[in-house]
Design a binder for these strands. Sequence first.
DNA 1: TAGCTTGTTCGACGTTTCACGAACATCGAA
DNA 2: TTCGATGTTCGTGAAACGTCGAACAAGCTA
Lengths: 119, 119
Amino acid sequence: MRQVHHPEVGEISLTVVMGALSDPIRVGLVRVLADGRERGWGELRAPVAKSTLSHHLRVLRDAGLTRTRQEGTRCFVTLRVHDLRERFPGLLRAVLTAADEQDVGLQVSVQESPRAAVS
Amino acid sequence: MRQVHHPEVGEISLTVVMGALSDPIRVGLVRVLADGRERGWGELRAPVAKSTLSHHLRVLRDAGLTRTRQEGTRCFVTLRVHDLRERFPGLLRAVLTAADEQDVGLQVSVQESPRAAVS
DNA sequence: TAGCTTGTTCGACGTTTCACGAACATCGAA
DNA sequence: TTCGATGTTCGTGAAACGTCGAACAAGCTA
């Protein structure tokens, strides 16, 4: 569809990342991707219109939290676990732990599909 | 002036905290308070109008990041280091480290004053 | 009491964010 | 080539945010 931009590791900004994580749906997406496995866009389930979901995924991507790969007409998303660890040691773990305790982002899930995300 | 509200430790919300940390000035304030010492409101220096500074300090307070104590006509602010560690283990350190590396919030400083913040 | 200091609140302004449905672009399949 | 599936983009509101100056409230100090 288009060639999206992903910031370099060194360009990932703290405040932008914090802003990206200030929305429950986006935290939910991060949780769902936290195991590092690649997920198909279409597998992601959130209680919002698809244009809104596209918006949230864009915010995460622009912030440098996720990476989007295109394959034909569909997209696959991954959390940039390695990059995040490098840029913000300890942050991801802290956020995931807190999100877990506070049940943030439970509205988001993945509809596991047979031929999706070949890990 | 008024009786401000501070959330309990258990009420501090991840997404609200992340939102509070998504502004450079607020991150700067957190940095300046990071040593745990109490600071006088008037000591805080930031390149914004005092009403704006008041707003930022309120956001931090409402999010549960800081505590404000009043003494006569002046206020003293502290970072809730202990509470934050309890609620979000590892988060504060990660944020401070990243802020340090990225020079976030350098616009904020403290004008050390003689009789201020008796640690 | 009058006045000063300190910080909050208010109202206004422009920007950004989140949400939606509709339209669009692209690719694979029929 | 036509059709369907998949996401993005656009246009539009409503709400939230960051900022300011002005007005205010509360407590010292003279």
